[in-house]
Amino acid sequence: MANLDEILESKEMADVVRAIEALKQKYGPSTSPKGDLQSAAKEHLWPVALTLVGTYKADVVLRILLDDNAYYPGYKSILAAGFGGWLIAPRSKKIREALAIQAAAAHINNAEVQAGFDEPFTVRKDVAARYLFIGTEFMVEIYDCFGGSQALADAPSFEELWDAFESVEKTINTAARAIAYLHHAADRFGKPGFPFVPSLNKAVQVLDQLKDKNPTYPYKEKFVSRSLLHQRWSQNKQTLALLYAASSIRINRKTLLQIILDGFLSYDDHKDYLQMWVSRARYVSTHIFDRMNDPELSSKTLRLLGEGKAISFSPPKLDDKEAESFSVIFRNFIKN
Rank of each mutant, 00 (worst) to 15 (best):
N109R: 14
N110S: 15
N110D: 15
A111R: 02
A111S: 14
A111N: 05
A111E: 03
E112I: 05
E112C: 13
E112Y: 14
E112F: 14
V113H: 14
V113Q: 13
V113A: 12
Q114I: 07
Q114F: 08
A115H: 08
G116H: 03
G116R: 02
F117K: 05
D118E: 13
E119H: 09
E119F: 09
E119R: 12
E119I: 06
P120S: 11
P120Y: 09
P120V: 07
F121P: 01
T122Q: 11
V123F: 13
V123I: 14
V123N: 09
V123M: 11
V123C: 07
R124P: 00
R124Q: 12
R124L: 09
K125L: 06
K125M: 06
K125E: 07
K125F: 05
D126L: 13
D126F: 13
V127R: 05
A128P: 01
A128F: 07
R130V: 03
Y131R: 02
L132G: 00
F133D: 01
I134W: 02
G135N: 07
G135V: 02
T136L: 00
T136K: 00
F138V: 01
F138P: 01
M139V: 00
M139K: 03
M139D: 02
V140I: 15
V140Q: 10
V140A: 08
V140D: 06
E141R: 13
I142M: 01
D144C: 04
C145T: 08
C145S: 14
C145L: 09
C145N: 12
F146P: 00
F146R: 01
G147R: 04
G148W: 03
G148M: 04
Q150L: 13
Q150T: 12
Q150D: 14
Q150V: 11
A151M: 03
A151S: 13
A153Y: 11
A153D: 10
D154C: 13
D154R: 14
D154Q: 15
D154N: 15
A155G: 04
P156D: 10
P156E: 12
S157D: 11
F158W: 12
F158H: 10
F158V: 08
E160H: 09
L161R: 09
L161G: 12
L161Q: 10
W162V: 07
D163F: 10
F165A: 12
F165L: 15
F165P: 01
